[in-house]
Simulated scan of single mutants.
Amino acid sequence: MKQTGSNIATLIATATPAARRRDAETLTALMQEVSGREPAAWGTIVGFGSCHYRYPTGNEGDMPILAFAPRKTASTIYLDDTGRYPEELAQLGPHTTGKGCLYIKDLEKVDLAVLRGILESTLAWTEAGGNDQVEITVTG
């Protein structure tokens, strides 16, 4: 994955429906505050910082440290592993999950303090270098 240099405001402005644009603005501010990094476009993903990952299998690449995508059906928030947050997710509010993705249809219905804690934990895990399943080096 590579940064594309697209304009973040334009990326957010084209998100539909209107609730997704509103949520994208909130997530941008939250992730910028949590990460201390400026947003950058990685295609249709809004990312904060960058890192290089490498799996024992040899698969490797680059990705943002924290990121989300304002998709039509829900905001997709990329995490290290949703399985690490069972208590937090139980308190978050309406959402669904995948292995490393948190899907939120309406950010106004979730507890932003809980979401902040999950993002802070993901950031700390990434900055610590991952685990025995993946080696991570922060590059930006």
Rank of each mutant, 00 (worst) to 15 (best):
M1K: 14
K2N: 14
N7C: 04
I8W: 05
A13R: 10
A13P: 04
T14H: 11
R21A: 08
R22Y: 05
T28P: 04
A29S: 15
M31C: 09
S35R: 00
E38M: 13
E38K: 15
P39D: 08
G43Q: 01
T44W: 02
S50V: 02
Y53I: 02
R54N: 01
G58T: 01
N59G: 00
N59L: 04
P64I: 11
L66K: 02
F68K: 03
P70F: 07
K72Q: 05
S75M: 14
S75P: 00
T76A: 09
I77L: 02
Y78C: 07
Y78W: 08
G83V: 06
G93V: 03
H95A: 03
T96Y: 01
T97D: 12
T97M: 07
T97A: 13
K99A: 06
K99I: 10
L102P: 06
L102D: 05
Y103F: 13
Y103R: 12
Y103Q: 07
D106L: 06
E108W: 00
D111N: 14
A113H: 11
V114H: 06
V114D: 03
V114P: 05
L115G: 06
I118H: 10
S121Q: 15
T122V: 15
T122S: 14
T122M: 05
A128N: 14
G129D: 03
D132W: 03
Q133L: 14
V134P: 09
E135K: 11
I136Q: 06
V138S: 14
T139I: 10
